[in-house]
């Protein structure tokens, strides 16, 4: 046939296109893409393997049994240790202590929760710092003053 050559050309062209498409997809489509939808499923495992920073209150108890049990009896039982201190990751690695845990004794530490604000629910114990310390409005609030009367781990408030 006089047109056989044309047909073969078209076929070869198509095959080349198909091979290119397969090779292109192999390099462009990442592994596990499309496994559960239009995304890379391996991404989930990557999120899962991110390191833990906060250990939770239970992670402190093994070494700090005394404080942990004292805390249970007080008004701060529901406050996780890491809220006032720092996350476990800066202090311990496994059972090894790697650095001192920061201790914040500033008024700011207490006032973030206990400063009187109208937006705060009334069930929350709140104070006006100047009123509570019987200071003039112009006077600055002395730092690290709360801990002098209120033990932070187990405050007993009437």
């Amino acid at each position: 046939m006089e047109h056989t050559k044309h047909i073969w050309r078209a076929v070869i062209l198509l095959l080349a296109f198909a091979v290119l498409a397969v090779i292109g997809r192999h390099f462009l489509v990442p592994e596990t893409f499309g496994e559960h939808g239009f995304y890379r499923y391996a991404s989930l495992a990557e999120f899962m393997s991110k390191p833990l920073v906060h250990g939770g209150a239970e992670s402190c108890t093994p070494c700090h049994q005394e404080i942990a049990s004292a805390k249970q009896t007080g008004k701060h039982a529901s406050v996780s240790c890491e809220v006032c201190h720092a996350p476990l990751a800066v202090h311990a690695s496994g059972e090894e202590k790697i650095a001192d845990m920061p201790v914040d004794r500033s008024v700011r530490l207490c006032s973030t929760c206990h400063l009187r604000l109208i937006a705060r629910p009334e069930t929350m114990p709140q104070i006006d710092l100047h009123e509570h310390l019987e200071l003039e409005r112009s006077e600055p609030v002395p730092d690290m003053v709360c801990g002098l009367c209120h033990p932070p781990h187990a405050p007993q408030v009437e």
Binding site: F17, A21, F33, A45, E46, S49
Partner: peptide, 22 residues
Amino acid sequence: ILTGEEAYVWGSAFQEAPQGAP
């Protein structure tokens, strides 16, 4: 080609373990 290739990619993804951390 496209649908065949699509089936290939989707099918193989089920058999292969996800890359990265398990």
